[in-house]
Amino acid sequence: MKRKRIIRTACSVLVVAFTLFMLQRLLLPKYVSDVVEGRLIAEYYAEEKDHDVIFIGDCEVYENFSPKILWEDYGINSYIRGSAQQLIWQSYYLLEDTLRYEKPKVVVFNVLAMKYDEPQNEAYNRMSLEGMKWSMAKVKAIQASMTDEEHFLDYVFPILRYHSRWSSLKAEDVEYLFTDRKVSHNGYYMRVDVKPAKDVPEGKMLADYRFGENAYQYLDKMAKLCRDNDIKLVLVKAPSLYPYWYDEWERQIEDYAKQNGLLYINFLELKEETGLDYDSDTYDGGLHLNLSGAEKITAYLGQALQDEYHLTDRRSEERLSKIWADKTAAYEQDRRKQEEETEKQ
């Protein structure tokens, strides 16, 4: 009798665990056909983790820098851990998370995130945090990012968040139940189409141009984490024309970089040096660069990193070269596919 009860209970637990697991897999957004940004963070874990340079930041990193160029031109193995509206504390904890797997020589952080001092938006939080593997870094990232309406439990059991998707499931939810489709090239989100930058709005007057205390606190933590791990921290401002980058913000970053001995590159001021053309190098009117623009500024960044930190050219490493040969093939295939689609339109 007792044995029968134990078997019955065990079977029940198994059925509950299995069905909940399957339902959760089914209901989670797959981020395959649209809002692919939601997949970026998770893709990192499938990589071989031996990167020289890690990028962290928002769309200004994952849409504006191409790791393939760093490899092709300088033999630098890099990866972008970027996500949409990645807040600075998310960047910090993503860096902590990265350091659990590898120790890059250089970390590049895009400073636009300094404009946010408090949690912003649940949907963007999800895209930045859901892909992270569980660790204390993820726990802290969630706690730092949650808006008032969010609950930690919803991150632990995402089925609680996505339970209502049952009425809008698509074929891809079944297709990608257990499989993934790569959407990035080492974290880079490729776009080849062109939309010239015209009538970019000027920045509105702000009541206060000072970056917030919380943002500074995480920038300090990031700088310290890099120092403690003997990593060079590079601050960059990508050449996106919007959101507007104020002179007051620029001065604060310049001062911070100076005080902390950090390299700071503002690509907005390097139009001539990079050869960037806002008529042909952006796909959305200046907010983000297309492939042509991204390759131009990455080439410049690669040279700057080489000049500053003398990173080893690793193109002679057979194993890595083979990996990059495959990556380059996929990159070129994606480029061709997108170009064909653009031509058709």
Binding site: E122, E149, E150, D154, S164
Partner: peptide, 25 residues
């Protein structure tokens, strides 16, 4: 019998979990 009891209550739990109007949104 136990399988029927289990199916009824676990089924109801799943209905609440999936079709309940709660959470963000």
């Amino acid at each position: 019998p136990y399988p029927v009891r289990f199916a009824v209550w676990y089924g109801l739990f799943l209905i609440v979990l999936l079709m309940g109007v709660y959470g963000i949104g």
